[in-house]
Nucleic acid binder design. Sequence first.
DNA 1: GTCCTGATCCTCT
DNA 2: GAGGATCAGGACG
Length: 206
Amino acid sequence: MKKKFAEEIKIISAPIDRVLPVSFYDRDTRIVASELLGHILVNSNSEGMTSGIIVETEAYLQNDPACHAARGMTKRNRAMFGPPGCAYIYFIYGMYYCFNVVTREQGVGEAVLIRALEPIGGIELMKKRRGRDKLTELCRGPGRLVQAMGIDKNQNGQDLTGNELFVCAADEGGHNIVNTTRVGISEGKELPLRFYIAGNPNVSKR
DNA sequence: GTCCTGATCCTCT
DNA sequence: GAGGATCAGGACG
């Protein structure tokens, strides 16, 4: 029991020193989407800390019909036009939230949707929030990972380089990235803007 | 004001 | 594989 706790702290605390800087997000959205794979998303709140390796992302570009920002800024998508390295969280299908990271300079409405994570920290808390025990059922899918991580709509627009909700660099590289078309959209579905880590069981759809 | 749509997930068949 | 749950935002009148 004690050993397990120590391991968890080690996993989480090591990368906190290396939170990805704003400059990481202030680049081409497709590059950010592919390079986010393998890094670690962390959320910390009063319930505890949860974290997971990003294994699946999708890029949404401003001139792309599937992107919320394609028709200009509205109250809903305002966070997407904010500075790079912020969160864009929106409500979908009456029941779920999706979590995005904002890219490019302020005023450009582009973002990367985080579609799936591999749970690594706070797994018991994730199981409790999701009401499921199986690891791959915790963060496989955008709505699921938001629920498991305890991400809240009030975190919309929040700075991802702070100490509550952030992404930190992981050492491991060498994974094979698959670049394919996006999921669940009608327009722009032919564009290869989805990225995932080949063979990872937490990827939502293959 | 009303109506329709949707970057999803779960359950049942 | 199909269909239902459930509601905010946007389009339209």
